[in-house]
Amino acid sequence: MHTFLASGRDADVFVVGPGRVLRRYRDGSDVAPEVAVMAHVGRHGFPVPTVFRSEGPDLEMEHLDGTTMLQALVNDDIRSDDAASILADLHRRLHAIPPMGMTSVGQHVLHLDLHPDNVLLTSGGPVLIDWRNAAAGAPELDVALSALILAQVAVEPIDMAPRAAELLDHFLARAPDSPTVMLDDAVHIRAGNPTLTPGELGRLGSAADLLRAKV
């Protein structure tokens, strides 16, 4: 018996038993590539959910306690500078892990979607979820995408915008790599994201301009 828990931009999550949830991609995408990356970084001590089963678009994993960093920010349960420190530390730890397989010199494991809604603040510490976009590449791209996503929220006409701008400032002060070296590549990736709304796509240039102005 599956009990609906939540929906994201491209997946639904169900409780399937004690301590277990099932995340299912609505477009039927195979979870095998991200499961492989999660297993790889997990072997190096990086905080990811334990995976119990994967098949096609279904990923069954542990049901973690706590809330997302985004919800904690909305609820004022975490300070922006502390949240930024966690984001920067996750980047630093992830990029220290050797990539899978044969890659070029300078390649590292990248998450490519590391932002507050993908960080769970559990009793055991922060855990990074949603590894669908993970790849090998330059750390500067990963940092640029995180900064750009924060900047996108900062230019949105929403109540969260000022808090996102504050978080962006703190993140830029702590980021382990430059957020502008590969900003054009980050903009290109975000522009091709099918889950973004027309409004979000329309303000992408403003977000990039804001980020450049802050660095």
Rank of each mutant, 00 (worst) to 15 (best):
G101A: 07
T180D: 10
E55Y: 09
R203Y: 06
P18Y: 11
V31N: 02
Q71N: 11
L73F: 10
P116S: 03
R190P: 08
M100N: 08
L211G: 08
V143N: 00
R43Y: 00
P98S: 08
M182S: 04
G106Q: 02
A161K: 07
P99K: 11
D30E: 08
A136R: 12
L167M: 07
P198I: 06
D77P: 04
A173C: 03
H95M: 14
A32Y: 02
P57L: 10
P47G: 11
G137M: 07
F4E: 11
M102I: 12
P33D: 03
H188Y: 15
V155I: 05
H40C: 07
A88S: 12
L167H: 08
H170T: 07
T50M: 03
H40R: 06
F46Y: 15
V105H: 11
R43P: 00
L148I: 07
A72H: 12
G202A: 13
G45D: 11
D58N: 12
F4C: 03
D82Q: 09
G8Q: 07
L167S: 09
A165G: 13
H111P: 09
A32I: 00
G199F: 10
N75D: 15
L210P: 08
S178L: 05
I189P: 01
H108E: 02
M38D: 01
V105P: 06
P176C: 09
R26T: 11
A151Y: 06
D113S: 02
G56Q: 13
L128F: 02
A173G: 08
G125W: 08
D209V: 09
M1F: 06
A134M: 08
A32W: 00
V119S: 00
S206W: 05
G106N: 03
V181A: 15
L210A: 08
I149G: 00
I78F: 13
R79T: 15
V127S: 05
A147I: 01
M69D: 06
H170D: 13
A6S: 08
T180P: 04
P116C: 04
G106E: 06
S85P: 00
D65Q: 02
L183T: 12
L114A: 05
L59M: 13
I158K: 14
D10F: 07
R9H: 14
D89C: 05
H63T: 00
M69K: 07
R190S: 10
D89T: 06
V143K: 01
R43C: 03
T68N: 00
P139C: 15
L196H: 11
L5S: 09
S29T: 12
G101W: 09
T197L: 09
S206R: 05
W131Q: 06
M182P: 01
G199E: 14
E200V: 06
A96E: 12
P33G: 03
V31R: 09
R53T: 05
F52Q: 00
L167K: 10
A165K: 12
S7G: 11
R23M: 12
R9W: 13
L211M: 12
P194T: 11
N75V: 08
A96I: 11
G202P: 00
T68M: 01
A164T: 04
M1H: 04
F171G: 01
S146L: 01
T180N: 10
G192M: 13
D117C: 02
L22E: 10
A135T: 14
L22R: 12
L141R: 08
P139L: 13
R190F: 07
F46L: 04
A147Y: 01
S85W: 01
L90Q: 15
V155N: 14
H44V: 05
